[in-house]
Write a protein that binds this DNA or RNA. Structure first.
Lengths: 150, 150
DNA sequence: GAATACTAAGTTGTGCACAACTTAGTTGTG
DNA sequence: CACAACTAAGTTGTGCACAACTTAGTATTC
């Protein structure tokens, strides 16, 4: 907690920032043949696993607001990957569903998690779980925000 | 390395992605009073520590290309945070230097690393170093790219 | 039941990231 | 010297993220 903590903590953030961009680039390369971006792929993963979902629930799961999701889903709709329809019960809610084309992609893209697994270079499942745990805790703490009084 | 590895590995990437966005938001909030973004702050940190630098060396350090840095530095120049001048020796090279105003900010922003330190929620220096090490290794492996044959 | 508060989705505007390209300057080779 | 190969910075275009706002529909309260 003493002296050089400062530099190290900036390094935590910077190495996070670098690692995420490297990961996104790996996904970009992997997904290029299907004209998919990483956030678009994440939407498909959620829809494949959970079925159709309102926009705000997708937003809760991916931690993205409508300002990000609305145009992203519009692009996915244009590529015939998702369909939107108003829920009849509550006319404010737009439900997003994977299309038949998206469902077909599920098999085609089944190799991706394994490829990414190798790309992480993590030695085993335990190491992966530990990293996930550390990152999730960091996310929670960060999201609680900058404590009052700086 | 067996069964559910796939799901876990997607979780590694997603937790990275979430953690980075949470961190960037924390920086955004912290830096708002100075009208600075996180990448702009990173440029200042490099210039403070290393003195003036050509654009491509900034790019090497931050892993950003000229397509990102050129407009970013233009915005920083407009805010009187950096100055650009052509190196006389090699006329292709534009050297970026912190302005007096940027140097003055160095003290004013001195509290930030400590605040971020607390926001990470990491228990001690050892935990921070371990996370940095894991992330740097992951970045290197990721950047080596998707191995041939998928 | 009318005014108010709230919620869901979408819009607008700014700033990264990054691929692909352009322009200008430098180096290397014959 | 000429010319090809290379390098540095900048430009263009696309797609996130996200703050701030708008629009429309729902719930609440009196």
């Amino acid at each position: 907690m003493i002296m050089n903590m400062s530099v190290v903590d900036e390094m935590v953030c910077f190495s996070l920032y670098s690692a995420t961009r490297a990961t996104t680039r790996a996904y970009t390369e992997l997904l290029a043949p299907w004209d998919l971006t990483y956030p678009q792929y994440l939407v498909l993963v959620v829809l494949w696993r959970e079925g159709e979902k309102p926009v705000h629930e997708l937003g809760d799961m991916l931690q993205l607001d409508s300002g990000t999701l609305s145009p992203l889903l519009r692009r996915m709709e244009a590529k015939d990957l998702v369909a939107r329809h108003r829920a009849s019960k509550d006319q404010r809610i737009v439900t997003i569903a994977a299309t038949a084309r998206a469902d077909a992609l599920r098999e085609e893209l089944g190799h991706i998690p394994g490829v990414i697994a190798r790309c992480t270079g993590l030695p085993d499942l335990a190491a992966a779980r530990e990293l996930i745990s550390t990152l999730q805790q960091l996310t929670t703490t960060m999201r609680n925000g900058v404590p009052a009084g700086n």
